[in-house]
Design a protein around this nucleic acid. Structure first.
Lengths: 108, 108
DNA sequence: TATATGCGCAACTATCTGGTTTCGCAAATT
DNA sequence: AATTTGCGAAACCAGATAGTTGCGCATATA
């Protein structure tokens, strides 16, 4: 198996998804994050390391505290992967639209 | 750790993502899918089982062959999760827009 | 009927995962 | 200067993951 980190690896864990949502709007310290979960700071620290390796998160030191911040643009990579399926949704939607238009014309 | 299957679990594996893309447009048999990868049919079968458990894939028997089809609507769940971040992107885009408008007015 | 083919399931294995506890370092507080 | 606080890194562990091989069953072909 590959051991390389990618964005999908980052979001597979439910705790990690919750962390991402938590820090989406404001940077937080590991301790502050850990308070939101039933787990230790060290466990959160490990999640943050993985998120950092995926470049989904950056840190800025402030005294002895480290604030972790979401690099939200990185989330767009998932959006880009989804694009291929969105095309299919839209194609089907248009097909349905045509069917409805045809039915409408037949009624005339 | 949870053992429950969710859509994120389905897409974390690169082979599984490739399978999803492969069968997005037309249903395929395990053998046909396996031909596209450097792995055995049994391994593909295991992936298909996981995808089925996630309700991302359905099967239809045709003689001794089983065709696996993507339930593309299920992919929308990822899209829904992404929506919260898309809101942030758009909010920032609008902020930028305002800044540009302000600059424009100052020039007048 | 005998043989081919397509398939899922079970057993086994190496590796990855997410968690814990323990530790040491640096910054803040006393 | 001594203690407390915030943090990451390392060692360890149970469980999950993705792959393999071997098997039995059902359908198609000879």
């Amino acid at each position: 198996m590959e051991t390389r980190r990618d964005i999908f690896q980052a979001i597979v864990d439910p705790t990690r998804r919750a962390i991402i949502t938590l820090i989406a709007l404001q940077a937080m310290t590991p301790n502050a994050i850990a308070e939101h979960f039933d787990t230790t700071r060290q466990a959160v620290s490990k999640h943050l390391r993985i998120l950092t390796e995926c470049e989904l998160v950056t840190q800025k030191q402030q005294g002895r505290e480290i604030f972790y911040q979401l690099e939200i643009d990185k989330m767009k990579e998932i959006d880009q992967w989804l694009a291929q399926f969105r095309e299919i949704w839209e194609a089907r939607f248009n097909q349905l639209d045509e069917v409805l238009a045809t039915l409408k014309n037949l009624k005339k």
